[in-house]
Computed example of a mutant assay.
Amino acid sequence: MMTGNIELQSTTNHGTWRWLGRIGYAIMYIVLILVAVFQLFPLVWLMFFSLKNNQEVFNLPPLSLPMHPRWENYSKVWNAGNIDVYFLNSLWVTVVATVLTVVLGSLVTYAITRMKWKGSSLVLGLFMVAMMIPVHSTLIPLFNFFNKVGLTDHPLSLVLSYVAFNMPITIMILLGFYYSLPREVEEAAVIDGCSVNRMFFRIVLPMTGSVIATTAIINMIYNWNEFIFVNTFISSDSYKTLTVGVQNFIGQYTTDWGAIGATLMISILPILIMFLFLSDRIVEGMAAGSVKG
């Protein structure tokens, strides 16, 4: 009889914990849904904002639908606003700077983690210290340098600046993953007569695909959204990017707010789409690079 009571009590406790677990999961999902809605609020507001004219922007509530959706705002900024040129400039500058940063960062990380040479710790320390340098403190020195070498108002000044400022964070993300790579694979390649360069490009680089994808996505987001360097070094419309192109719709006496909203929406969509499709690679690369051994 006592055994039956114990089993009944155990079953009751198990059922109680199961219901508590379900309630906990329900609360967690409700909280996550609320956070997701809060995160999506600016995008919804910007979408409605981009389909309004100036009167609707100031007279209607922020989340109200436009009385007559003005899709012509997008065609106006793309054709008359020179946004197509700015979009292509942002695209190729972002891609070139990202590829250079990832390749150079991988080479530096490989040399620091897989080779024994004097000064490797010093070089790593210098890169880590570079992360603490504020971007704003370098604007005047960089402008003077680019002015002396004839690179002001030239896209190469943006590419060089992006590579220099993104190298430290790229190396920091790559370090943990490179430390965890098994040395047996490289030792076997050396026995087979593989050179260092071939070993890096044929063996090591393909093994680091997940963390390279992570660093590439982070670099692309930064390069695509960067404003300070473009606004400082570039003055010609033919070299401007999307982040500064929005200023074309801000006049001395009037401002086309609908066109500004359409420009911002166009600038957000590529990064948003890329992040939605590749966000799992960011988590995978971060998790892979966080474990050593």
Rank of each mutant, 00 (worst) to 15 (best):
V123I: 15
F41L: 12
S290T: 05
M47F: 08
A288K: 11
A80P: 02
M286H: 00
T138P: 11
N89V: 08
A36Q: 01
T208W: 06
W224Q: 08
Q39R: 11
I23G: 05
A188R: 07
I173K: 04
L104Y: 02
I221K: 01
N225D: 03
L142G: 07
F48Q: 02
P155Q: 09
I221C: 13
Q247A: 15
L174A: 10
Y178N: 03
D256S: 14
L63N: 11
F38I: 06
P206C: 05
Y178S: 00
P141C: 10
A259G: 10
M131Q: 13
L34K: 06
V103D: 06
V57M: 01
L63V: 09
P66F: 01
S50Q: 01
K240F: 09
W92S: 07
P134Y: 15
W117E: 10
V77M: 13
M220W: 01
M1E: 13
Q247M: 12
A262Y: 07
V31S: 03
N223R: 06
L32M: 12
K148I: 06
Y222M: 05
I221G: 13
Y253F: 15
T101N: 11
A259D: 05
S120Q: 11
K148Y: 03
F227M: 08
V190M: 14
I191D: 07
F165S: 13
N166S: 15
L32P: 04
P66S: 12
T138W: 11
V196H: 11
F49K: 01
P141M: 12
K118W: 13
P168S: 12
R18F: 00
G258M: 09
V196E: 14
F277M: 03
P206M: 09
T12H: 04
M131E: 05
G209P: 08
L142F: 10
S120E: 08
R70Q: 06
N79T: 11
D237L: 09
I282L: 06
L91Y: 02
V37P: 06
Q252C: 14
I133M: 05
S161E: 10
S267L: 01
L139I: 14
L158D: 00
